[in-house]
């Protein structure tokens, strides 16, 4: 994949999301630019409240749209998803782009056997009952639920968290999407199960060519599966690059601090980032990270830094040249 220029699947340009709330407008996403390529696993990482989930849900148009305003564009196969009607969007969801969430127990119907819930997707796609059943069995086996003939009759309460996440993935894949969005898919799971689900996502990309867009606050997960990563802070992408570029040569102080906050034995103290992300109701003029940044100077307060391009894939938004990484 290194020498061939990959094809862009989704292109997010200047995305802004303003949410109306009783206490004033929340500027949750403030001009995000990023691409998701075909057949890649792309990560979006940042702390809680940085706009990651809203960005991901914007691609699916799953935000509460009566209370928010979009600006900018999300281009997919020559169309801007933000301009589609709800009916047109229904055609995109599932068949083109689908999504899984942190807690599968909230997303499944507790009163239906899991097999039925997968079959439903095939039935909506126009298959007969028999064909849908057959496809469901194959899909269950593909996502690692064995034996499928027996397990498809299980109700969600009879399955473990890891198995339920597999069922969610089966439902998400049933209509054959080109992009699977996974919002913190392993945060609620045990280490061993997290590892298995991440392996499954890799497997799906390798065998089906489905692009995976994974949202997480954990750089450990990124190191495990992503090809490329975008780092989000206060509603903006502050750095993006291939995973090795980011781990070996992060240029934005926020990226560095996030990577350094992973605890490791032998390292004296994991870096804790002082303070908290800004209140997204406020207007932020300069670099949003300046108040928490160990390197900040007066010029950081002037305006949001322009993109600086290092390689074809690696760019960042910081006016400073911070010293070599100590990671």
């Amino acid at each position: 994949m290194t020498n061939i220029l990959p094809d862009t699947l989704v292109s997010i340009r200047g995305l802004q999301v303003n949410i109306m709330s009783a206490k004033g407008a929340v500027h949750a996403v403030r001009g995000a630019d990023m691409d998701i390529f075909q057949g890649e696993i792309c990560g979006l990482v940042g702390e809680s409240g940085c706009g990651k989930t809203i960005t991901a849900k914007s691609v699916m148009r799953l935000n509460p749209e009566d209370r928010l305003v979009y600006r900018g564009g999300i281009e997919y196969e020559g169309r801007d998803l933000l301009t589609l009607t709800e009916r047109e969007m229904c055609e995109v969801r599932g068949k083109h782009i689908s999504m899984i969430f942190q807690d599968p127990t909230l997303a499944l119907d507790p009163l239906q056997p899991v097999g039925k819930q997968i079959e439903e997707v095939y039935r909506i796609g126009g298959l007969s009952r028999g064909e849908a059943e057959e496809k469901t069995l194959a899909m269950l086996s593909d996502v690692g639920i064995h034996p499928p003939e027996e397990r498809r009759r299980a109700y969600p309460f009879e399955m473990s968290g890891g198995q339920l996440q597999r069922v969610m993935i089966a439902i998400a894949l049933a209509a054959g999407p080109k992009l699977l969005i996974a919002d913190e898919p392993t945060t609620a799971l045990d280490v061993t199960v997290q590892d298995q689900i991440l392996e499954l996502l890799k497997d799906i990309r390798d065998k089906r060519g489905t692009s995976v867009f994974i949202i997480t606050h954990d750089f450990g997960v990124i190191a495990e599966i992503a090809d490329r990563v975008a780092v989000m802070y206060a509603g903006r992408i502050v750095e993006t690059g291939e995973v090795t570029e980011i781990f070996d040569d992060a240029r934005h102080p926020y990226t560095r601090d996030l990577i350094a906050s992973i605890p490791r034995a032998g390292n004296d103290h994991p870096v804790s980032i002082p303070g908290a992300p800004p209140d997204l109701r406020e207007v932020i003029v300069g670099c949003p990270y300046a108040p928490r940044c160990g390197y900040a100077e007066a010029k950081c307060e002037e305006s949001f830094p322009e993109a600086r391009v290092l390689t074809g894939t690696h760019r960042f938004h910081c006016v400073l040249d911070i010293p070599e990484a100590r990671i």
């Binding site: 061993t192 997290q194 298995q196 450990g220 990124i222 190191a223 495990e224 995973v243 090795t244 781990f247």
Partner: peptide, 21 residues
């Protein structure tokens, strides 16, 4: 084996367990 590597591309020393608890 299930512990995240911490850095991309690092080798894993051990094999994963089979199945779930």
């Amino acid at each position: 084996a299930a512990k995240p590597r911490g850095r991309p591309g690092e080798e894993k020393k051990y094999e994963r367990p089979e199945g779930e608890i």
